[in-house]
Design a binder for these strands. Sequence first.
RNA 1: GGGGAGAUAGCGAAGCGGUCAAACGCAACAGACUGUAAAUCUGUCGGCCAAGUGCCUUCGGAGGUUCGAAUCCUCCUCUCCCCA
Length: 404
Amino acid sequence: MAFPSINEQMDVIKRGTVEVLPEEELVKKLERSQKENKPLIIKQGFDPTAPDIHLGHTVGIRKLRQFQELGHQVVVIIGDYTAMVGDPSDKKSTRPRLSHAQVMEHAQTYQDQFFKILDKSKTIVRFNGDWFKKMTFEQIMGMAATFTVARMLERDDFAKRYAAQLPISIHEFFYPLMQGYDSVEIKADVELGATEQKFNLVIGRHIQKEYDMEPQIILTMPVLEGLDGKQRMSKSLGNYIGIDEPANEIYGKTMSIPDDAIYRYFELVTDVSAEELERIKSQLADPAVNPRDLKSYLGRTLVRMYHDEKAADAAEEAFRNLFVKKDVPDDMPEFTLGGGAMRIDEVMLATKTCDSKGAARRLIKGGAVSLDGEKISDPFFTVDLSAEHVLKVGKRKFARLKTA
RNA sequence: GGGGAGAUAGCGAAGCGGUCAAACGCAACAGACUGUAAAUCUGUCGGCCAAGUGCCUUCGGAGGUUCGAAUCCUCCUCUCCCCA
């Protein structure tokens, strides 16, 4: 197998990457890989805590893809063991431990989604439970002995929690160790992670050295902002765009990001060329250009990546109709609520367009509810169910009421 | 092991016997304005009932004192700090 030249490879690797540590070592590894015609082992880990891959994850996954295209070997670690241990960072709501079956289920959906980006035939997937469940206590002690508490407390989030007098459990210290040990097991040459992962990645280097192994190079990738444009995109914050979501969702969510996030999204999660990026940047700075149009372009690009061109057209069209022309969408949940009449708050509860009847009344009072385009202001309004209706609650919630 | 402080709604944080379904800030939701952007303004932000000086469930958990407890007492659980 022929690898591209070192310079070409470095160009690809460094594009969009925050840090390559240490760069000279990577060059050496690449040189050796080329001389021996042996691909480097590129690692990234994922905890299958919830079964959705979102755009934030794709920043790293897309980089993995580039490594594949350069001819290197990608190894994806599914952290089934770490996921089963359960992340205790949110002490209040002691997160339910995931059963092995759940983990495997999540792992499956993860993989389905990985391979929307990665080349399946060139990817090795490993579960870290494979080695951790076989470890003896002696081996665990050995692993734990490779690191000190003082260094562990250097990690930013531990330091902050410690300073804020928040609890830190001992086993949380095992997280970075385990992640580092994964690198030993698969003999990683390079590990990718978001910038916030830097500490864990560096521990991987340290542990590999302890196990008499050449340390991995670490590549940190930028953290993508979520839909609010401020906080990181994450499942727990609910501000994400999943790559498995329907086209309309991907497009619609994209349209809701703030203007100053547009460039970041183009840069981090799309394939547009460097020249195109420049053009986008200058357009964003041009007051004559409506940023909405660039956002629409972004939304279309993303839908095209995870669906296709047709879906992009349809999503844009649906969005226009819904929010610009204020038409009702074609697709909406349908409900058959039996015949006769039903009070509006009960209809809202039945169609899950509100959480409680009290909430329904508040929404009605706030002018958020309409039926067939007519605003409802009477909380005791009775809906005639012998005819079909379209219920709208807020900007986005719709329900079609069918007759029995 | 000893001593001290603390646990309040999604988060932060007041309240320290009745006027508490609990101030305030953030987040969230809705309305106005818009480009489903931002900013701003307004309203809402435990559940139920045709809605009231109404009923039910909530201030870590279990009991108790009291006409009345987020507030006082006892025990328990958890957390942080100092000492060993």
